[in-house]
Computed example of a mutant assay.
Amino acid sequence: MSFFTHFGTYLLMLKGMFTKPENWRMYWKEFMHQCVEIGIGALPIVVIISLFLGAVTTVQTAYQLVSPLVPPSTIAQIVRDSMILELSPTVVSIVLAGVVGSKIASELGNMRISEQIDALEIMGINTKSYLVAPKIMAALVVIPALIVISAVLGIWGGRTAGSMSGILATDIFDIGLRQNLNIYNINFAMYKAYTFAFILSSIPAYYGYNVKGGSLEIGRASTSAVVVSCILILCADYALAALLL
């Protein structure tokens, strides 16, 4: 299939989601289920990655800032802005593309191969609205929240690493944390969070929903979904930075 064929099918899938639900309670239950699956399932890896990202950023920044003319509180500012602007939104989203994206693609692919989607369509249920839309909406709710948690934990991890290694006292770190804070950086991080959440949920949903063949094709679809999602996240990262910064 060519790029334009894939893109047209992708747009048709997104268009098919916007219909009136047959049963609001059933759709709400599925939405909440996906929120729990995506949020709780990805939380441990987000916590671990964020803590170590903040800690490593503090140590490496202190290693590079060897000039006595640079105040030590600058380390906290660099860690804060690095976590908010780039590390938490982009790195966490790429990790979630592998964790969440492969799950979405394999789940929908298995339902397609086992003809569960065909059975739902025969019953008159809009499968795009019932199966795909709750996953994308749940990702748009949960993933930005995970990125906020990641930024907070990353800064706290950097603060703890600076204190434990003797690089930077916590009171000096706190002073630097409050200096020159640009609120727009937080807004920009949320723009990226919602954009990446849509990409890493809709692309795997497309690949899983349209898989054909057997179990081997499900694995290939999951791999393709993760690779394409990561590439699009990086492209969107550059595009948003070029347009909004």
Rank of each mutant, 00 (worst) to 15 (best):
N210S: 06
T58E: 05
T19H: 15
F31D: 06
A242P: 06
L244H: 11
G98S: 01
R220N: 07
R112N: 11
S2I: 03
A241P: 03
G154I: 06
T57W: 02
V79A: 08
N126D: 07
L96H: 04
M32E: 15
P72K: 14
I155Y: 05
I49A: 15
F188V: 14
V228S: 10
A189C: 10
G157C: 09
Q64E: 08
A161R: 00
P204V: 04
E107H: 11
A105N: 01
K15T: 09
L240C: 04
G162I: 01
I218Q: 02
D237G: 10
F188E: 10
N185G: 03
E115K: 11
A151H: 02
V66F: 08
H6N: 13
L232K: 07
I75P: 03
A197Y: 05
Y130D: 07
I233V: 14
W24R: 13
A145L: 10
A242W: 11
S73Q: 10
S129R: 04
V100A: 12
V91T: 08
V211D: 00
A197I: 05
M32R: 14
G8K: 06
I218C: 07
N182I: 14
Y191H: 12
L168V: 02
I84T: 08
A133C: 13
R25V: 10
S93L: 09
G176K: 02
V91L: 09
L244Q: 10
I167F: 05
G154L: 05
I38N: 00
P72S: 12
I218P: 00
M137E: 05
S222Q: 02
Q60R: 02
M111W: 09
L140K: 07
A225G: 01
Q179V: 15
L245H: 10
V56L: 13
G208Q: 05
S215H: 13
H6S: 14
L51D: 11
M13K: 11
M111I: 14
L240V: 12
D237F: 08
G124M: 09
I147N: 04
A221R: 05
N180R: 11
G54M: 05
Y10M: 04
I104A: 01
V66H: 03
C230F: 08
T170C: 07
I218K: 01
V226G: 03
A97E: 12
L153F: 04
A76D: 13
A133G: 09
N23L: 06
I149K: 02
F4H: 11
G98N: 04
T90I: 12
